[in-house]
Write a protein that binds this DNA or RNA. Structure first.
Lengths: 214, 214
DNA sequence: TTGACAACATACCCGGTAGTATGTTCATCA
DNA sequence: TGATGAACATACTACCGGGTATGTTGTCAA
C-alpha cells in the first residue's frame, strides 16, 4: 500500500524541525534558543513543534540522537574492515572529521549535550533519556579509544596516557565544529584537503610514525 | 595614607564576584546563568552584583577581561626571551596550558566570549566593549601564530596551512578547559605531567621534529 | 556627633519564554 | 458525504530572570 500524504510528510516535517533546531542550537546554544526561534527559522509557529516533540529538552535530545545516528551510519561501512589498528584509525578518523564538517550543526549539539551533562534535565524521564544518549556517545568514543590503544601496543602510536591521548585526539578531530564554516565556491576537494590536515594533526599528536599513515 | 576598609574591601569584593561569576558561567554557560545564581554562589543577593557591574553582559565582559589579563601577565616574563621560534613556542605553550588548567573557569569564559561573538550584546556600548576584548584576544593569538610561522620557515614545524595549523594548535592547547577537572590528592607534579602531554601533542601536531622540543 | 556616602539587601516591575488549551484546515475512510 | 483525526495555527497562562527603585547599615570625614 502506497503511503498517503500524511505518512510521506510526517518524517520530512519532523526532519525539517530537527534541522532548524540543530541550526538554532548551533548558532545560539541551548539556553539562548527559544522554541519560537526554531519556529521562526521554519517560518512556522510553536504549535507545529510541540505537536511533534514533548518539550524543548526532548527536541534537543532528538537532535542529539540524530547526530549520533549519522555518525554511526557513516562509520558502519568501515566496521567490517580488517587490518592494523593504526591504519583503521586513519580511515575512521577521516570519516569522523568529514561528519564534523558536513553535519556540524548536529555535531555541535552532540558536543553541547555532552558538555551539559544532566544540567537542565529536571524530570526523571529526561534524565533517563539523556543517560541513554550519553551511553551511546560513550560507546562511539570507545571505538576510537580501542583503536589507539591497540595502535600503541603495536608500536605505531606513542603516548604516555591513554585517556589523555584520547581526549586530545577527539579535541582535534572534533574541532571543525568550532572553526569550520563553509566558504563560497568551496569544492569537495577543498574540504577533503581540510579533513586531511585535521586527521594528520591528530595522527601526529598520537605519536604516529610519519609517513605510514596514508 | 593607609587604605581604609572600603578601599581594601572594594577590590576583594569585586574579585569575589568575578570569581563566582566565572564559576557559574563555566558550569552553566552564559545564557543559563542568572544573576541570582551568581549571587547565590556568593551567599549574597543581586544588589551587590549590580552595585559593582552595570549589567550581566558587563559582568561577563569583565570576567573575560580578567581571564585575558591573566594570560598576558603569565606570558609577560617570557616576552623578553630571545631564541629560536620553535623553542620559544614550547615555553609559551607551556605557560598557556598551565593557565588553561589553573584558571580554567576564567579561560572557559574567554572561550565562550569568542564563541558568542557579538550575539547578545544589544547596546552599542557593549558591542564596542566586546570588540575591544576580541581585539585583545586576537593579538594574544597572534603571538603564537607568529611563532609557529617562524618555526615553519626555519624548518622546525611542518604544516600546509598556517591558519588551520593555528586553529588546531589552539584547540589542543585550550582543550583542558573542557576536560580537565582537579582530582583529589593531585600534586603540582601531576599537573605538570598533564601540561607536558598537551604541549607535546600540540608540538607533534605542528609537525615539530621529535626530540628537539624539550 | 552627625551628615554623607559606599556597600550592600529588599521589594518590585516587566518583557520574554516554556508549555497549554483551543481553534482551524484538510486528507482519509467508512 | 460526513465523520474523524492528524497537522498544524492562535491565544493564553504562569513563571522566571534582567533590571530598577528603594530601604538599611556601617564607615569615614569634618
Amino acid at each position: 500500500m502506497a503511503l498517503g500524504i500524511r505518512e510521506r510528510t510526517l518524517d520530512s516535517s519532523r526532519a525539517a524541525i530537527l534541522e532548524a533546531a540543530a541550526r538554532c542550537f548551533h548558532e545560539r546554544g541551548y539556553a539562548a534558543t527559544s522554541i519560537d526561534d526554531v519556529a521562526r527559522a521554519l517560518q512556522s509557529t510553536k504549535g507545529r513543534i510541540y505537536h511533534h516533540f514533548e518539550s524543548k529538552a526532548d527536541l534537543f535530545a532528538e537532535v542529539f540522537r540524530v547526530g549520533m545516528d549519522m555518525n554511526y551510519a557513516a562509520l558502519e561501512p568501515l566496521r567490517s574492515l580488517k587490518g592494523e589498528a593504526h591504519q583503521l584509525w586513519r580511515r575512521f578518523a577521516w570519516v569522523h572529521v568529514d561528519q564534523m564538517i558536513t553535519t556540524r550543526a548536529f555535531q555541535r549539539v552532540v558536543w553541547m549535550g555532552v558538555e551539559m551533562h544532566l544540567v537542565g534535565a529536571p524530570t526523571p524521564h529526561q534524565r533517563a533519556l539523556f543517560e541513554e544518549l550519553f551511553e551511546t556517545r560513550s560507546r562511539y568514543g570507545d571505538i576510537f579509544r580501542k583503536l589507539i590503544a591497540e595502535g600503541r601496543e603495536s608500536g605505531h602510536f606513542h603516548f604516555p596516557n591513554l585517556s589523555v591521548a584520547n581526549q586530545l585526539m577527539f579535541m582535534t578531530l572534533n574541532s571543525p565544529i568550532f572553526w569550520y564554516s563553509p566558504r563560497t565556491g568551496e569544492t569537495r576537494a577543498d574540504i577533503e584537503d581540510l579533513i586531511a590536515q585535521v586527521v594528520t594533526c591528530a595522527w601526529r599528536g598520537l605519536g604516529g610514525t610519519e609517513g605510514t599513515g596514508k
